[in-house]
Simulated assay, not measured.
Amino acid sequence: MFALPNKDNKEKFVRDMFNSIARRYDLMNTLMTFGMDKSWRKLAVRRAELENGGQGLDICCGTGMLSMEQARAAGSSGKVTGLDFSENMLAVARKNIQGFQLNNIIEFMQGNAMELPFPDNTFDCATVGWGLRNVPDILTVVKEMNRVVKPGGKVVSLDMAQPTAPVFKQAYWLFFDKVIPAMGKLWGGNKGAYDYLHDSAKIFPPQWELVEIFRKAGLVETGYKNLAGGVVALVEGRKPNQ
């Protein structure tokens, strides 16, 4: 059985793992979500309420797909910052935006989601896609996202969740336990990495518990929206107006 890293060594493990799978990450994400990941990212940005000319932050940005979706909302007069601690994922992100019409408004930078290198009240929104399950402490990261967002701004997470419908739930976990690791071994090029992604998704807090973490971080108007029957969920909250 694959041994998940503990809190003390998780940061290094996750960085090394994503460095190793960066080149194939987008392909695997599309295959494992049956191509639905694109529409989910669009919805996440809509829920983040980023407007034309706004300034957005995308943490754990990986290969930059959610950052590009933010850029489409912010338009040519806006600005989007994508932050990740994997240098190889950022290299893929920079390659991905070559030829993207709004690439000039996107800045990618290496950094730690546990200690965001930005002043308070900087961004109109902050998003994280499939990233919270990879950080050492979820509450700390959500607090940091809350800190750097302007009063009234939104914090939105898009990540794996837990379906609740009885028959669908059993069928999903059977698929998840058998098919996903096999796909990772076949196409991902790193079986251990996809074992980790599988196991970390299984222990990630369900959407209703993640909402409570958002509340503890100081956000209001918190809630979640299930996607694909609860396989994935959007969890969101708003920074209180001061």
Score class of each variant (00 low, 15 high):
residue 220 V to E: 15
residue 196 Y to K: 03
residue 129 G to D: 06
residue 93 A to M: 09
residue 186 L to N: 10
residue 201 A to G: 12
residue 154 K to T: 05
residue 148 V to P: 05
residue 185 K to C: 05
residue 231 V to K: 09
residue 94 R to K: 15
residue 211 V to A: 08
residue 141 V to M: 07
residue 182 A to E: 07
residue 16 D to R: 12
residue 94 R to W: 01
residue 54 G to F: 09
residue 169 K to G: 01
residue 137 D to Y: 04
residue 205 P to D: 12
residue 147 R to I: 02
residue 223 G to R: 07
residue 165 A to G: 01
residue 55 Q to I: 13
residue 3 A to N: 15
residue 50 L to C: 04
residue 198 H to Q: 14
residue 140 T to S: 15
residue 72 R to H: 10
residue 75 G to W: 01
residue 83 L to K: 08
residue 241 N to K: 14
residue 23 R to I: 05
residue 203 I to T: 12
residue 112 N to A: 08
residue 189 G to Y: 02
residue 114 M to L: 13
residue 73 A to E: 07
residue 242 Q to Y: 08
residue 116 L to R: 07
residue 42 K to A: 10
residue 14 V to R: 10
residue 79 K to A: 11
residue 22 A to S: 14
residue 62 G to L: 06
residue 242 Q to I: 08
residue 5 P to D: 14
residue 149 V to M: 05
residue 209 E to K: 13
residue 157 S to N: 15
residue 15 R to W: 00
residue 127 T to Q: 12
residue 119 P to R: 13
residue 137 D to I: 02
residue 195 D to P: 02
residue 218 G to T: 07
residue 91 A to E: 15
residue 107 E to P: 02
residue 104 N to P: 00
residue 75 G to N: 03
residue 130 W to H: 12
residue 145 M to A: 10
residue 126 A to P: 04
residue 52 N to W: 05
residue 119 P to A: 13
residue 182 A to W: 11
residue 197 L to C: 03
residue 175 F to V: 08
residue 157 S to M: 11
residue 165 A to Q: 10
residue 186 L to Q: 14
residue 42 K to D: 05
residue 196 Y to N: 02
residue 173 W to A: 09
residue 50 L to D: 11
residue 47 R to F: 01
residue 179 V to F: 09
residue 238 R to V: 11
residue 76 S to H: 12
residue 203 I to Q: 11
residue 113 A to V: 04
residue 212 E to R: 14
residue 126 A to M: 05
residue 80 V to N: 09
residue 93 A to G: 11
residue 79 K to R: 15
residue 122 T to C: 08
residue 6 N to E: 15
residue 215 R to K: 15
residue 39 S to G: 13
residue 116 L to A: 07
residue 191 K to C: 00
residue 104 N to H: 14
residue 155 V to Q: 09
residue 74 A to F: 02
residue 130 W to M: 14
residue 214 F to H: 07
residue 193 A to C: 07
residue 155 V to P: 00
residue 226 N to R: 12
residue 42 K to N: 06
residue 171 A to Y: 01
residue 142 V to H: 11
residue 146 N to Q: 15
residue 110 Q to Y: 00
residue 110 Q to S: 13
residue 181 P to N: 13
residue 106 I to T: 02
residue 38 K to Q: 13
residue 18 F to C: 05
residue 16 D to Y: 02
residue 37 D to N: 12
residue 47 R to Y: 04
residue 62 G to V: 05
residue 84 D to W: 08
residue 73 A to I: 03
residue 91 A to F: 10
residue 101 Q to P: 03
residue 84 D to N: 07
residue 63 T to V: 04
residue 91 A to N: 15
residue 4 L to H: 09
residue 189 G to I: 00
residue 68 M to H: 11
residue 191 K to W: 04
residue 70 Q to D: 11
residue 54 G to V: 08
residue 41 R to E: 13
residue 7 K to R: 15
residue 27 L to H: 10
residue 161 A to T: 03
residue 219 L to R: 12
residue 111 G to M: 10
residue 201 A to N: 05
residue 90 L to A: 02
residue 164 T to F: 01
residue 175 F to M: 14
residue 48 A to L: 06
residue 222 T to L: 04
